[in-house]
């Protein structure tokens, strides 16, 4: 049984919160550069240039890429042979967020309660935590600060089996079309298919963690992703909604088994400030 101390977990989460908010992933930067080369709309190109400049400034000055430094979503892949010691795991994660946001000049964007007089919790806690227990003795922690502009445009569709692939495509396109300029395009579209109403939302969110530009390992899904991306780009929304081709940088689809009577589809929309950082303990 390998031991990991809570203090190490807090320290790691704090560091990841800051790195995710300051440094745009290389995959996103590359996708924005490719998008700039391919964009036909002059206003669209201007937006993409601003976003590349913005990433440069944020990284070199260590300031947040976006003022909305998000609700902190944590993904834990917890090896079953690990023993967490010297504290409470949930509190260690919250402490990491508290310290990361406090010391990193990140905005505190959470309120409690959500109705009945919304009051800021002052330290961006609590995070939303998704834990999967996996074989082995490693702990993988991913921090994904999620802004509300794009999260608010995310959708759940409880389709029926007869809707099939065409129904899934209609649902995804409807979500992106209705979102229009609101979620800060160019977006990354995370899609979950299958599972249950709550699991499909998790699948869609987890799909955002995949490196941009890497298609699904399932060739059927890879084809679906390419078709959806092309159809989304035909919508014409463009960077910042000012018109153009680069409405989305990528579509990532994940599947899970589902009930004989169900076809859940979750669409999690991620703005171009597609921030996530991972560490393995």
């Amino acid at each position: 049984m390998r031991e990991i101390a809570c203090a190490e977990i807090s320290q790691t989460v704090a560091r990841l919160c800051q790195e995710a908010n300051y440094y745009l992933g290389e995959d996103v930067v590359t996708a924005l550069r490719l998008g700039l080369a391919a964009e036909e709309s002059p206003l669209g190109r201007e937006v993409l240039k601003q976003l590349l400049d913005n990433a440069e400034i944020a990284g070199s000055e260590q300031v947040p890429l976006c003022q909305d430094t998000g609700l902190t979503v944590l993904f834990l892949d917890l090896g079953q042979d690990i023993h967490i010691v010297d504290g409470d795991l949930g509190e260690a994660l919250a402490e990491g967020v508290r310290r990361g946001y406090g010391e990193g000049y990140l905005r505190k964007s959470l309120v409690w309660p959500p109705i009945f007089g919304r009051k800021n919790t002052q330290d961006n806690t609590p995070p939303v935590v998704h834990t999967e227990v996996v074989p082995g003795d490693r702990l993988t922690i991913t921090v994904l600060p999620k802004g509300a502009g794009s999260e608010n445009m995310s959708r759940l569709f409880m389709l029926t089996p007869s809707d099939g692939v065409a129904g899934v495509k209609r649902a995804v396109l409807k979500a992106v079309d209705e979102a229009g300029p609101n979620p800060c395009p160019p977006i990354i579209v995370g899609v979950g298919i299958g599972g249950t109403a709550e699991h499909v939302g998790y699948l869609a969110k987890r799909a955002l963690l995949r490196e941009i530009g890497r298609p699904s390992a399932d060739p059927r899904l890879a084809e679906l992703e390419a078709e959806l991306l092309a159809e989304i780009r035909d919508l014409g929304i463009g960077p910042a909604g000012f018109g153009g081709r680069m409405t989305a940088l990528a579509v990532h689809v994940e599947m899970a088994p589902c009930h004989i009577a169900s076809l859940p589809v979750g669409v999690n929309i991620q703005c171009h400030s597609a921030r996530h950082k991972t560490a393995v303990l």
Partner: peptide, 8 residues
């Protein structure tokens, strides 16, 4: 509109 996400 300002460009969303060009915050820095």
């Amino acid at each position: 509109a300002a460009v969303g996400g060009a915050a820095a």
